[in-house]
Simulated assay, not measured.
Amino acid sequence: MLPGLLPTPPSGGAQTPARMRQAAQAFEAQVMAQLLQPAFAAADASRSPFGGGSAEAQWKPMLVEAFSAAAARSGRGLGLQDMVLRHMLRVQEASTTPQENRP
């Protein structure tokens, strides 16, 4: 999980669009980290400029999360956050619209 990216829900129950965007961004970063993890695991750390070792192996998952979070924040990620945000807004709108006003 990416700490600090997941918003806490406001007290009214409904999420604001800004908080929803943060949640969508955090989701995209998490998905991207899951996709990048095998690529970094397959890299031969002994041939890196730092020589590998146990310390480098311990920090590698955090490096993957940092890359993923930066890519999601920059908008150069997978393109999921806009789709997720649209869906979240639709679901929230449907849950707050009274039943008799729904099409």
Rank of each mutant, 00 (worst) to 15 (best):
Q22Y: 07
A69F: 02
A24M: 11
L6V: 15
R90Q: 15
P9C: 09
P7R: 05
M83F: 10
Q15D: 12
Q34I: 00
F27T: 07
Q92W: 09
A39F: 10
R76G: 02
S11V: 09
A18T: 04
Q22A: 15
R102L: 14
P7D: 11
F50D: 13
L78R: 05
V84D: 03
F40I: 06
G4H: 10
A69G: 13
A24E: 02
A57E: 15
S74T: 06
D44Y: 00
A57I: 03
D82Y: 03
L5E: 12
P7E: 10
G13N: 04
A57F: 02
L5C: 00
G12F: 05
A41V: 01
S11K: 09
A66D: 06
F27W: 04
Q25N: 05
L85N: 08
Q22H: 12
L63K: 06
P61N: 06
E100R: 13
Q34H: 00
T16V: 07
P10M: 07
Q15I: 11
S95M: 14
P10Y: 07
G12V: 08
L5K: 07
F50N: 11
A18C: 02
A23I: 12
F27P: 00
Q30C: 01
A42Q: 14
S11Q: 12
G13H: 03
M88K: 05
S54N: 12
L6A: 05
T96Y: 06
M20I: 03
R76H: 11
T8H: 07
A39K: 02
R19T: 08
G53L: 11
T96W: 03
G13R: 08
A14I: 03
L85E: 14
V91P: 02
E93F: 10
V64R: 00
W59F: 15
G79K: 00
P38K: 03
M1T: 11
G51W: 03
R47T: 15
S54M: 13
F40E: 06
M32H: 02
L89M: 13
Q34A: 03
R102G: 00
R73V: 11
E65G: 12
S48I: 10
M83S: 13
P3K: 11
M83Y: 08
S68M: 01
L5S: 07
M62K: 12
P9R: 13
A26I: 01
Q15F: 15
S46H: 10
P17H: 11
Q99N: 02
Q15T: 09
G52K: 10
